[in-house]
Every structure is written in structure tokens, then in C-alpha cells.
Design a protein around this nucleic acid. Structure first.
Lengths: 137, 137
DNA sequence: CAAATTGCGTAATGTTATAACGTATGATAA
DNA sequence: TTATCATACGTTATAACATTACGCAATTTG
């Protein structure tokens, strides 16, 4: 065990690492097919290679799926899988994504689940609009 | 102006009304292609006929899009367009969808926007898991 | 009337995601 | 060692979701 800088720090296969690297380098979210195109030179030929890697990366908390964009983004936190819930704030102009996972988010979701007598297993909170910089510009 | 029971109560075209009727009859969310299949007998031939009607119905607040399902559902409220924000609580077993739009939801989103210095224009809050009945069963 | 708006129909295409095969490899237990 | 299990892989095909682009018809509005 050499470098321990993230999450469960599971060992990644080559394909998983390649997909992770692409997302780490990206400034914003990427669709599976954008990732595929980036990895053609590395030998990727089919969507499934991307989707299978993403499935694992999402499972271990290193990647998030943005439902409203059908896109994927590297987790910007060290341990959001411990908190488990994240809200995404997505600028529709510059495409920057802020990842918020604090108590207010988990508290809101807990309250919502309680109020609706619901056993929640997954959540998706996504806000669209303009970030501070783009609104001003 | 005859019956006034919903939202802005805009006049609907025939296609829009047909799509609205299908969604009103449905117990849960429906994909655009499920709606299309329901309307073959009424003369629908192409996805665009559905998507165009949905666009209008969503704009006037009578239908919501569920991003995490790529599906659509009739609004269960009389005036949620006035509040503008809704949280969806989706049972993955029975597929029932609860629509929550109270102050806690709008307050949470307002706080989130303020905290991230964000000008929000659209939101999507979707909770997946098991409803009370299915959890018990 | 002219122009603008809204809705419609159709064909083609683009985009996102999964099913269904079979194969290879490494761990582990008999 | 051999059997078996789990995980990952590669490929082809297909399913599922959504939009572009074209032209036409009806209605509203200046």
C-alpha cells in the first residue's frame, strides 16, 4: 500500500484508472462518450469499457453521476462517501460544478425522508443557473 | 374561459391534451416512448410529437420531468409553479412518486444558492429508496 | 395585408446506455 | 494441482432517450 490519498483507496484496474485520470484532468463533467473519445488512443473501442469503469468508480465514491446532464465528474472531496450525500451546483454558462456536502444537505434529506416515511438509498440534488462569476460577466 | 382547475390553465392543443390525459391516467412516471405507444391509436407516429407536447406541459407546470428516470409525471398539485421547487421521493419498488413542495424545500434551495453565490434557475431533487409500504412488505 | 408566433407531421440522425456473448486472469479452497 | 469463483475484459449488436431540419397550416398582431 503506497499512496493513500482518496476514499476507500481501492485498487483500480487499468481501464478504471484511465477513466479516473480523464475525469481528474477535466475541468467539468464529461459524458461517457466524451470519455470514450479521450481514450481511443489508449485502446478503448466501446462504450461498455467506459460504463463498466464508471460503475466501479461511482461505487467507491470517486466519481459522481450528474443525472440532469447524463454526465460524470470526479469527486472533489476526500471522503464524501462517508457523508454519502452531495448537492451539485451547476453553472449552465461556464459549466463549472460545485459539490456541496455538508450537514445542511444531509439534514435536509433526512428530514425529507422522515416526513415522507421513506427509506432513502440514493439521492440526487442538482441546481442549475449561473455562478457568481458568470452572473456578473 | 370555462373550467379553471389548474395552474395557469393555458389552453392546450389537441396533442398536448392527449399527452396530459395519458399522464393523468398513469399511476406513476412514464417515459416519452411509453407515452408515444399509448397514443399510437390516437394518431401519434413520432417521438417529437410527444416531446413537443411535454415541453409545453412542463413550461406551464402541469408536468414534471424526473431526471433520474428520464421520465415524466403529471404534477399532483394545483399551483406548484407558484412555489417553483419540488422534491420527488421515488419508490424503486412500487414506483410511486411523492411530490413535495413546501417551505423546507424552497428554504433549503435558497440557502444552498446563497451559500454558493449562485443564481438558480432550475432545480432537481430526487430521492430514491423504499416507501413506507414497500419497506414493510 | 404582412409579419410573427405557434403548432403540426415526417424523416433522419444524434446521444446515452445495456444485453448477450465468450475470454482471461488471479485468488482460494479441495 | 485442479476446480471453482469472482472480477475484469473485448466485441457486436441493440435498446432507449432526444433533437435537428425541413416544410406546411392556422392564428394573432401590427
Amino acid at each position: 500500500m503506497e499512496h493513500s490519498h482518496h476514499h476507500g483507496d481501492a485498487e483500480l484496474s487499468q481501464n478504471q484508472q484511465l477513466v479516473m485520470d480523464v475525469l481528474d484532468r477535466s475541468t467539468g463533467a464529461m459524458s461517457a462518450y466524451m470519455i470514450l473519445d479521450e481514450l481511443r488512443d489508449s485502446g478503448f473501442r466501446a462504450p461498455l469499457q467506459v460504463y463498466r469503469a464508471l460503475e466501479k468508480l461511482i461505487a467507491i465514491g470517486r466519481v459522481h453521476r450528474l443525472e440532469s446532464l447524463n454526465a460524470f465528474i470526479a469527486c472533489s472531496h476526500l471522503s464524501c462517501e462517508k457523508i454519502g450525500v452531495t448537492a451539485f451546483v451547476i453553472c449552465d454558462r461556464c459549466e463549472h460544478v460545485q459539490e456541496v456536502c455538508d450537514d445542511s444537505v444531509s439534514q435536509f434529506l433526512a428530514d425529507l425522508a422522515k416526513k415522507t416515511k421513506f427509506q432513502a438509498s440514493k439521492s440526487s440534488i442538482e441546481l442549475h443557473g449561473l455562478c457568481n462569476a458568470c452572473e456578473a460577466g
